[in-house]
Amino acid sequence: MKRRDFVRKSIGAGIAASSVMALNPYTKLWGKASTLQNYDLVAAKGGEPGAMFDRAIQSMGGMEKFVKKGQKVVIKPNIGWDAVPERAANTNPQLVGRIIEHCLAAGAKDVYVFDHTINEWTRSYKNSGIEKATKDAGGKIVAGNSKGRYHQVDIPGGKVLKQAHVHELILESDVFINVPILKHHGGAGLCVSMKNLMGAVWDRRYWHANDLHQCIADFTSAIKPDLNVVDGYKVLMKNGPRGVSVADVETRKFQIISTDMVSADVAATKFLAKDPSQIGHIRIAGEMGLGEMDLSELNINRIQI
């Protein structure tokens, strides 16, 4: 049995078991095994990326809450840079692989992975380890470098950004999972969920030339991922978003998942002991009502591994 099949089957078995427990009125016999609370946000800490995701997604109700049988899923990690995983410039490949396995176990027909990279894309895909992780997990890696694959989308709620060219996979897929890596960002302050969506559009230059923070928030009003998974396993603490060397990286071992990008970004910011209202696009998105900035309003599950 291949590792991939094993993982898929064991995840499937786990899901089946927990479903049985959830539906069974005698669940209480297992103590507090019921995991189906409606959490707005789940934060996990202290484990490996894959293990943290297993626990976090389970407490969100399992991947089948997001992915139905036969659906087409697109995962958008950060693969922006020609850098090895230790440099933490790109999303952790192990995490990407595990998310794909969960999607396939939930019955997804196809799981696509792409990013509109900043460095040369074939090298970025390869050296980030994400190309291999995707293929090993059974996903399909798709190039993000062709202008023809991006289609114009109107952003009626945008103040500055009125339209953008968005990759067709984002537009066509049934499920969109956003998997940013948390990192320092010289221009945007921090790079989390909302900033990560810049890799889903073609014409980024316009954003930089026309009030970057407002554009990031504007885009969020039109394109909303079904799930955001913030990778905080290794964190680039300075010289972001690219980083100069491994000396810029700190191993923090946390992960946040949420359907609300604003909340996820606020939570991630707090993990770095920063003030979310100081990050322009997070503050603007909160003011525009695109998500909840006040974490005390949310039902949060905290998982320590």
Partner: peptide, 8 residues
Amino acid sequence: TACGSCSE
């Protein structure tokens, strides 16, 4: 307005 594209 914010940018930082060069440093990025």
